[in-house]
C-alpha cells in the first residue's frame, strides 16, 4: 500500500513536470477556457434569458463544470501516448505498483483541474461574477468540482485505452463528452429545450452537478442536487475505474 502511494506520487510528479513542456496542452486548459467564458458572456449572453440571474453568474458554475470534466483528456492522451511508445512496457517491467500508473495520471489531473478552476474563477470575478454564498459553501463547491473532475479522469482513462493514438483519444473524448455538457443546464436553462432534450438534460449528471454548484455558489434552491452530485461522481468512479484497469491490463498484455 505504501508502495502504491509512493509510486503514484512519482507518476503524478512526472506528469506535472511534462506539462509546461507541451505548450499545446498547456494552452488547452489555461487560455482556451478564458476564451470560452468571454465568447459565451459577450456573444451569447445577451440572447440567453436566465430568469433570476445575470448571465455571467449563471454561466460561471456551468462552464467550470464543463471545463473540469474535460480536464481528464490529459489522462486519455497521456495513456494513449505511453502505450503507443512502449513506455508502459518499461513501467510494467519495474518492481513498481501496477495501479500507480493510472492512479498517478488521474491524481495529476486534480492539480491541473485546480489550476483551470482558479483561472476561470478569477476571469469570472473580473467580468462581474459574484458569489452569493458563505466561505463553507464556496469551499464545498470547490471540493465537489475536483471530485467530479477526478471521476471524469477515470472516464477518460478508459477512453484513452480504447484507442491506439493520442489523437484518436482526444477526438473520441470530445465527441462523447461535448454533447453531454451542452445538453445540460450548463449554458442555458433546460426549460428552453424541446421536451425530449429537456428530459435527457434533467437526468444528465452534468445538470445535477451544475445545479449543485449554483446551489452552493449562488444560493439557488438545492433540492437533492448537492448530495446527488457527490453520489453521481462516486458512481462514475466505481464504474469507470475498474473498466480502465481492465482495459489497461488487456492493452498492456497484447
Amino acid at each position: 500500500m505504501r508502495r502504491l502511494a509512493t509510486d503514484t506520487m512519482i507518476m503524478a510528479e512526472r506528469n506535472l513536470v511534462r506539462l509546461p513542456r507541451n505548450p499545446d496542452l498547456f494552452t488547452a486548459f489555461t487560455i482556451q477556457p478564458i476564451m470560452f467564458v468571454l465568447l459565451f458572456v459577450y456573444v451569447f449572453g445577451g440572447a440567453i434569458s436566465t430568469p433570476g440571474y445575470d448571465y455571467v453568474d449563471f454561466l460561471i458554475p456551468g462552464i467550470i463544470v464543463q471545463n473540469i470534466a474535460f480536464g481528464g483528456f490529459i489522462t486519455a492522451m497521456g495513456l494513449a501516448e505511453d502505450l503507443n511508445r512502449g513506455l508502459i512496457d518499461r513501467f510494467r517491467s519495474l518492481p513498481m505498483s501496477r495501479a500507480a500508473l493510472l492512479a498517478g495520471r488521474t491524481l495529476s489531473d486534480v492539480a491541473t483541474n485546480t489550476l483551470s478552476m482558479v483561472i476561470l474563477i478569477v476571469t469570472g470575478l473580473i467580468i462581474g461574477f459574484s458569489f452569493n454564498a458563505n466561505i463553507g459553501e464556496i469551499l464545498l463547491g470547490v471540493v465537489l468540482l475536483l471530485f467530479f473532475g477526478y471521476a471524469f479522469s477515470w472516464v477518460f482513462a478508459f477512453l484513452g485505452m480504447l484507442v491506439t493514438t493520442p489523437e484518436a483519444a482526444n477526438s473520441l473524448g470530445f465527441m462523447l463528452v461535448f454533447p453531454l455538457t451542452f445538453i445540460s443546464s450548463a449554458f442555458v436553462p433546460t426549460e428552453s429545450m424541446p421536451s425530449a432534450l429537456q428530459w435527457f438534460a434533467d437526468v444528465n449528471p452534468f445538470t445535477v452537478v451544475v445545479d449543485a454548484m449554483r446551489a452552493l455558489w449562488l444560493g439557488a434552491p438545492a433540492g437533492n442536487d448537492v448530495w446527488g452530485a457527490f453520489v453521481w461522481s462516486a458512481v462514475i468512479i466505481v464504474v469507470f475505474a475498474p473498466l480502465a484497469v481492465w482495459r489497461y491490463r488487456a492493452a498492456a498484455e497484447r
Binding site: 512519482i10 513536470v17 512502449g86 513506455l87 512496457d89 518499461r90
Partner: peptide, 20 residues
C-alpha cells in the same frame, strides 16, 4: 519494447526509474 519519456530530460528519466 521499452522506451523513455520524451518530454523529460535524460536525468529526470533516470531519477524517475530509480525511484520506481
Amino acid at each position: 519494447n521499452a522506451s523513455v519519456d520524451e518530454s523529460l530530460t535524460g536525468s529526470e528519466n533516470i531519477v524517475m526509474f530509480g525511484r520506481l
